[in-house]
């Protein structure tokens, strides 16, 4: 489905964010992209839909090389790529419904989007998606009236409204608490399974990645240092990716969260 070959990005300042990254993602596979901040995770997924213009290499989505498209053709291809952001990137003063329908902008003429007159089919699909992510009764609320977890659900619905062939997910849980993070990851994996959608998920939380993704790619200083099943991730690999000290600290933190969560669930059940 997605084939990346020799992808490099050097910024004008001379910083090299990616150097010759190659991998393939088949239909229906969820790939977790792990690595410390500054490893190039964000640059990598932004190079795929060209929010960042890559310096070298090719990104093949199906039969089309995204790196060689003109503006108009790029917009047509971007409709096939749904993107979900760390801080939701919703338009806060618009309603939930407008945010979801903005996923259809690439398909409708300007006058329709300007008058908010979307085709009936798009509206029906938007309602169905809001129902799927559990926000049907919030459709007419303003996006800034929602909680963090709810906003990320709107972000997911907006990406799915595009009817995408690929999902790019940039740190979907970084602004959320551990419990909501798991719910969001669970929702994402369920949706990808339902639609056989391939997805690339940037995620700095390794235990969370291990729990939810089928394949992990480890990035360090813009290069792939690991590519395999989560079960194959060993302590030594993680130490190479993150540096030994940081990895130990991250693991301890996660164990503490794990200890805390069952008790939270119990108290929730009592109430």
């Amino acid at each position: 489905m997605l084939k990346i070959e020799g992808l490099s990005k050097a910024y004008r300042t001379g910083d090299v964010a990616l150097s010759s990254v190659s991998f393939r993602v088949p239909r229906g596979q969820i790939v977790g992209l792990i690595g410390p901040s500054g490893a190039g995770k964000s640059t990598l997924i932004r190079c795929i839909n060209r929010l960042v213009v890559p310096s070298e290499g090719s990104v093949m989505l199906g039969e089309i090389d995204l790196t060689r498209l003109g503006q108009r053709a790029l917009r047509r291809q971007r409709r096939r790529i749904g993107m979900i952001f760390q801080e939701y990137a919703l338009v806060e003063r618009l309603t939930v419904m407008e945010n979801v329908l903005s996923g259809r902008l690439g398909y409708v003429p300007f006058w329709r989007s300007w008058l908010r007159r979307f085709p009936p089919e798009d509206v029906r699909r938007a309602y169905a998606l809001l129902d799927r992510v559990g926000l049907l009764q919030h459709a007419d609320k303003r996006a800034d009236a929602l909680s963090g977890g709810q906003r990320q659900r709107v972000g997911i619905a907006r990406a799915l409204a595009q009817e995408p062939d690929l999902l790019l997910v940039d740190e979907p849980t970084a602004s959320l608490d551990p419990k909501t993070s798991r719910q969001i990851m669970r929702l994402l994996t369920e949706i990808c399974a339902e639609r056989r959608l391939p997805a690339i998920v940037n995620i700095h939380d390794v235990p969370l990645a291990r729990q939810f993704v089928q394949r992990v790619i480890g990035l360090r200083d813009g290069e792939i240092v690991f590519d395999g099943a989560p079960a194959q991730l060993e302590e030594t690999t993680l130490s190479t990716i993150y540096g030994a000290d940081d990895w130990q600290a991250m693991r301890r933190e996660h164990d503490e969260q794990d200890d805390a969560e069952p008790s939270q669930r119990l108290s929730g059940a009592e109430a």
């Binding site: 929010l51 801080e87 338009v91 903005s102 907006r158």
Partner: peptide
């Protein structure tokens, strides 16, 4: 960020203006 998100959906510049910039 909202502008980035709207253009990532394949929206035209006029639509990005309408949906991401004007509301703000």
């Amino acid at each position: 960020k909202p502008g980035e998100a709207i253009s990532a959906t394949g929206a035209r510049p006029a639509q990005v203006l309408d949906y991401a910039i004007v509301p703000q």
